[in-house]
Amino acid sequence: MKKPKIREDTVREACLIAGFLSCCAGIWMVFPPAALIIGGALLIWIGQPAKKQGRGS
């Protein structure tokens, strides 16, 4: 059986998402509608493509 290749970027992104989810869970315990708004905004932010390096900057 082949061992899957897991890159450092993949681990970093998984930890980032886990942190966002735990933050949203904590907000949910205080005020559920705020957790939905903040969680949705974070998911949109994560889903955006990476910015490319511009020339001459």
Rank of each mutant, 00 (worst) to 15 (best):
R12G: 01
K5R: 15
A14K: 00
G40W: 00
G40P: 03
S57Q: 13
G19A: 13
R7P: 02
K52F: 03
M29Q: 13
A41V: 12
L36T: 07
C24W: 05
A25W: 02
L16Y: 03
G56A: 05
G47E: 06
W28P: 03
L42G: 00
V30F: 05
G26W: 09
G19Y: 03
A50Y: 05
F20P: 03
W45K: 03
S57I: 12
G19E: 12
G40Y: 03
A35W: 00
I37G: 02
C15H: 12
I17H: 05
I46A: 06
A35Q: 04
K52G: 11
K51R: 10
E13M: 14
F31N: 13
K5D: 14
I27Y: 00
K2S: 14
P49D: 07
A18M: 08
L42Y: 03
A35G: 00
C24S: 14
A14Y: 11
G19K: 07
M29G: 01
F20A: 12
I6R: 05
G47P: 00
T10L: 10
A25F: 10
I6V: 15
L16F: 09
I44P: 01
I46Y: 12
L43I: 10
A41N: 04
Q53S: 12
L21G: 04
A35H: 09
F20G: 04
V11M: 13
I37H: 04
D9S: 13
E8V: 14
G39M: 10
Q53P: 01
